[in-house]
Write a protein that binds this DNA or RNA. Sequence first.
RNA 1: CGGGAUGUAGCGCAGCUUGGUAGCGCACCUCGCUUGGGACGAGGGGGUCGCACGUUCAAAUCGUGUCAUCCCGACCA
Length: 571
Amino acid sequence: MKMSKLFIQTLREFPSDAEVISHKMLIRAGYIRKLSSGIYSYLPLMRRVLKKIETIVREEMDAAGAQELLMPFVQPRELWEESGRWEVYGKELMRLKDRHNHEMCLGPTHEEVITAVARDSIKSYKQMPVNLYQIQSKFRDEVRPRYGLLRGREFIMKDAYSFDVDQAGLDREYQNMAKTYTKIFERCGLETKMVQSDSGAIGGSVSHEFMVITDQDSGENDVFYCNSCDYAANSNHAVSKLPEVNTDGGFIETKIVDTPNTKTIEELARFLNIQPSVILKTLVYIADKEPVLVLIRADKSIEETKLMNALGVNEIRIASAEEIKELMRKHGFDAEPGFIGPITGVRTIADETVRGLKNFVAGINQTDKHMTGASLPEINHYADLRLVQAGELCPQCGKPLPITGGIEVGNIFKLGTKYSKSMNAVFLDENSQSKPYVMGCYGIGISRTAAAAVEACHDENGIKWPLAIAPYHAVIVPVNIQDAVQTEIAEKLYKELQDAGVEAVLDDRVERAGVKFKDADLIGFPFRITAGKTAADGLVELKTRSTGEVETVTPEEASSRIIKNCKRQGT
RNA sequence: CGGGAUGUAGCGCAGCUUGGUAGCGCACCUCGCUUGGGACGAGGGGGUCGCACGUUCAAAUCGUGUCAUCCCGACCA
């Protein structure tokens, strides 16, 4: 490709409305263009990057035995009612009506459709196992799209669905996919961790996410992973061992004390001169519209995903001050938030940390009062509800757990029979028994992977694409277009590289060297060959973008080095 | 959904307080000059100032409404 013909416009400045680095870089370097909030055009360079990733995904999925298909993007309401998700999915599901007033939605994921497809085709155990995948645009009407391609509303995803006759089959395919995903991201040149995670709205039991590791503030998720063993988990699923702390308040007698204006744990602890670890914190949540008391040791916090799972509800939120007062009135109390304690007759769940409390401090549902030397009421429901924090200890080996940022680029779920049961998708086994398929689903965010790569690979001058997913492998820069020797060397190299299968760009623009160099860095070509001053001596300059290394070599040496590198990538 | 901010040329911005022919830098076109890290000079093209209504002789500017975009929050007793 000649640079003069390439459909691209680089910008001299970063866009003012972009926040994260991948968003800024991709816009400035001419890869994407925003059309609407969370909706982007992929310009030719970006399309090439996406295709590279898609190709790697297809090759590895096919090698793993999966088959590609393509399902509809617009789906009818009825299908989503079968699975029960028309109600459950919420506002992220983009709903619309066709001209006959028939309700439809844009596919945010395809469990329903694939289950319907399978239901029509897979009648016998002999047709399984089978794994079907597609690469397609998805639409999720995010509450707040942000971070460019990292959290867009429309995005490209590879989604795969497996069908097995039993759990053992699913377990095998799950392992197969875990291995395949590891290989895919490795080939993309990305360092990822497979972490335990919550299964969220998709449903099912076991799930893992593949995270590109970043520094904590640039990732979308917090990830804990142990440096000493193989433990790794998303913060919404992480567990830990707690360092020893005092959980005995040491109060000799049980009594009610005045604690004026101690609405927060911090104020209360300071007022009573005690540690938060001897206070029982009582939170009021509204879980699927019902109030629930949630108890936890006051130096710890609730992980709401865990709470939601433990309660078996779809939606939770912290109760408003009004709702709390209302609840108090209903049970004959008059207390402000900040002085709430256990109440009999209200659904109550306690975090495991509560078990260890002795002679502690708790609210008694009376404003400006607390009880010291309290002991535990009877609690029927204990669960792990705690948000793991940095500095807590690895649950497997006891070493301190560091926290880091992570960008989720892939996930794998064991769905089990959730969808096959609800949608009555069954087959006959060898005993002529009718059984629901045992399903798994496996996603990779194609466009997000590209953005994550930029997050992980860049410097202040621009993008440093991994060779395997770069839009082009190399750029050749004749410094002075009017210098016959330089252009001749450049064009010869250009042809040579192309003939060898290297994707090269010849920067034939009538521009000064500085412009070409700046653009080359910004766009992120892995290799740059410069035919400049030394061209008269038969030498060119080879620059490797990832390392910044610059060498003066013969043109033959430069091209053979690049060809060798590209061959190694198998591209 | 709550709070904050911003909408003026493809991008980045000024002008608005105090209403009077819409500007600057980059990008784009032409010519000259220059050619190793975003040169320079000269000349040019491009905007119903987000949209609607209102006030006024006159609105980018004032008022009301609306839409869009971005940021923060929706985290705890």
